[in-house]
Simulated assay, not measured.
Amino acid sequence: MSPRRSYDQYCSAARALDTVGDRWTLLIVRELLAGPRRYTDLHADLPGVSTDVLASRLKDMERDGLATRRKLPPPGVAYVYELTGRGRQLLPVLQALGAWGEAELGELRPTDAVRAHWFALPMLRALRGMGVGEGLVEVRLEEGDFHLYVGAEDGPVYGDGPASEEPDARLVLDTVTCAAISRGELSLEDAVRDGRIEVGGDGMAAKAVKARC
């Protein structure tokens, strides 16, 4: 475990950066917002991070009360990492950073890695912006599927892959449309209205989206 570095400034922003300002920390939080993850899964979905750096960041997050490590019950033998309540409080921080960074996203570069679930937080922002207060929403892209727990106060915020139960709404769209929404160039409402998103499901979330379009 690396010794904590500090800006030694009596400022809440500086104190926050003492804890989460290291490279990769907030991206680890992004991954753990999907719920408990194994080390190998985290490493696979954080391309570019070395094993030593990932292990160090996870230990730092345990020390700082942002994450915990536990062993899965039998027959599982693996350990998983998950966010604490304190760690989950970083969701609005990541959402604010994501909204601010929309203008920096630009077009996909040849060197850019892509994971379908990296669109989860932008889509969650878009759904909340449309007035969808809660519900299980499944999103289908050619890159892969993910699902969102809109309005969740405890537990995962999103999950990789299809929903394990019938979702309240299902959104089917292409990655180009999803990327445009993530860049702030296209609203979810306009994408549905223009036929670029197919909306399915009979739950309140689907009705809320259709009502706006």
Results as ranks from 00 to 15, higher is better:
Y79K: 12
G76E: 05
L72H: 11
Q95F: 05
L66A: 05
A44C: 04
S187W: 10
L83A: 00
E107P: 01
P162K: 00
G98T: 10
L72N: 14
K71L: 12
L171Y: 05
T40P: 00
L66W: 03
G201H: 02
E185W: 08
V93Y: 12
T40H: 07
G201A: 02
G203Q: 07
S56F: 07
Q95P: 02
V172K: 01
V49F: 08
M204I: 08
V114I: 14
L105S: 09
G201V: 00
L42P: 03
S187Q: 13
Y10A: 05
G129Q: 12
R5K: 15
E138I: 08
G201L: 00
W100F: 14
A116R: 06
Q9P: 14
P167A: 00
A113T: 15
I197W: 06
E102I: 09
E165T: 15
D145Y: 02
R183G: 05
D22A: 15
A208R: 05
D168M: 06
E82A: 14
R88F: 12
A34C: 03
R15I: 14
L171F: 09
E62T: 15
Y7Q: 03
R88C: 06
Y149R: 10
R88K: 13
E198P: 05
D154W: 13
S2R: 14
V114H: 08
L58P: 04
L171I: 05
A55N: 06
E166N: 12
L58H: 02
I28W: 09
R115V: 14
K210N: 13
P74T: 13
D112R: 03
G159P: 00
D202H: 10
M61A: 07
L83N: 04
E153D: 15
R37E: 06
G155V: 10
V80M: 02
R38W: 06
A99E: 13
S12R: 14
L72Y: 13
Y149L: 10
G161S: 07
Y158W: 08
E165S: 12
S182T: 11
P167W: 00
E165G: 09
R212N: 10
L97P: 04
L91F: 12
A113E: 15
E189F: 05
T19A: 15
V150Q: 00
I181L: 03
L42G: 02
D112V: 05
D52K: 01
L186I: 05
A44W: 10
S187D: 11
L188A: 10
P36V: 02
Y10Q: 09
T19V: 15
A206S: 06
A13I: 14
